[in-house]
Design a protein around this nucleic acid. Structure first.
Length: 283
DNA sequence: ACATGACCCTGTGAGC
DNA sequence: TGCTCACAGGGTCATG
């Protein structure tokens, strides 16, 4: 579910509750999500101070005292609920991990589909820790997403640009929504072989991708169904979607640029929906 | 080395 | 009302 803007929003929402706090009580309600939890999860977290929270790709990371780092991935349906001290606790399904801080703030990881992940690794091993080791360009880092770096990341790959931009080994943070939106704004057909993009097209992507991600973070992310921020608020970026979920509707870009009316199409690429305008996103 | 498809799981909404 | 089907924001394997 959550792509970079949603993960960033959630992480920022967790910060005031977690940074510099001790975890007074940790409840682990099942043995695994996509993978087994580390056997020592509860023991390692309990009574430990959280130094800082940050994000890499779509992972939420927390450095803990004693050299451990906690990693949380929300998969497709993962959410974090934060209940302030004294808040009545409502009954929620799929609360897999619950953490209560020394200030009595309650954080619950809820993930109905269980595609998420919770793990621990030694902080100094981050560069060799498999889920993080092979990640690609972090698009919001200063100087990271340049046309040259993007060219290198796409390499000689003949895979469709849509799939290449979803591949976290090349560039991180984009998911199905933001890839569709980026290609739409950059006027690039999603089926174009990745390696065959022109310099101009790579330049446009390098402008547009951070632009969209920043706008989406500002809007608190996109809520399609059930995504909510840690305050329980919905994101509002879905109202700014220009193609995603708009199959059969009129292309906004073509309407603005006095082109002939065009209708948004939906195709399937590697089993996932792609939305695009067949008129201005040229092959 | 690379690309594709199956798979992991539950929930929801559309259509009958 | 209740059923079946398609589809959902992601990542990892096995296979070719």
């Amino acid at each position: 579910m959550p792509e970079l803007p949603e993960v960033e929003t959630i992480m920022q929402g967790m910060r005031p509750a977690l940074e510099q706090r001790f975890l007074q009580k940790v409840q682990v309600n099942r043995p695994d999500l996509r993978r087994p939890f580390p056997a020592h999860l509860k023991e390692t977290l309990t009574q430990r101070r959280i130094i800082k929270l940050y994000r890499r790709a779509k992972y939420i990371l927390a450095d803990l005292e004693g050299g451990w780092t906690l990693l949380i991935h929300l998969g497709m349906s993962g959410r974090i609920f934060i209940d302030p001290p004294g808040h009545p606790i409502e009954e929620r399904r799929h609360e897999h991990v619950v953490m209560i801080t020394d200030e009595h703030t309650r954080l619950a990881l809820v993930d109905p589909r269980r595609f998420g992940m919770v793990d621990l690794f030694r902080t100094e091993e981050a560069a060799h820790y498999p889920p993080l080791a092979s990640l690609g360009i972090e698009p919001l880092d200063d100087g990271a997403l340049t046309p040259e770096h993007l060219k290198h990341a796409l390499g000689k790959s003949l895979t469709p640009i849509k799939n290449a931009l979803l591949d976290q080994k090349r560039i991180v943070g984009l998911g199905n929504i933001y890839v569709c939106e980026a290609l739409f704004r950059a006027s690039i057909h999603p089926a174009r072989p990745a390696t065959q993009l022109t310099n101009k097209e790579r330049e446009r992507l390098c402008m547009i991708i951070p632009e969209i991600l920043h706008e989406a973070i500002k809007a608190g992310g996109s809520t399609l169904r059930d995504y909510v921020t840690t305050d329980g608020e919905k994101g509002t970026f879905q109202t700014m979607h220009q193609v995603y979920g708009r199959e059969g509707e009129e292309c906004i870009f073509c309407a603005q640029h006095h082109k002939k009316t065009a209708l948004i199409m939906r195709i399937t690429q590697s089993g996932r929906s792609t939305f695009f305008c067949p008129q201005h996103q040229r092959k």
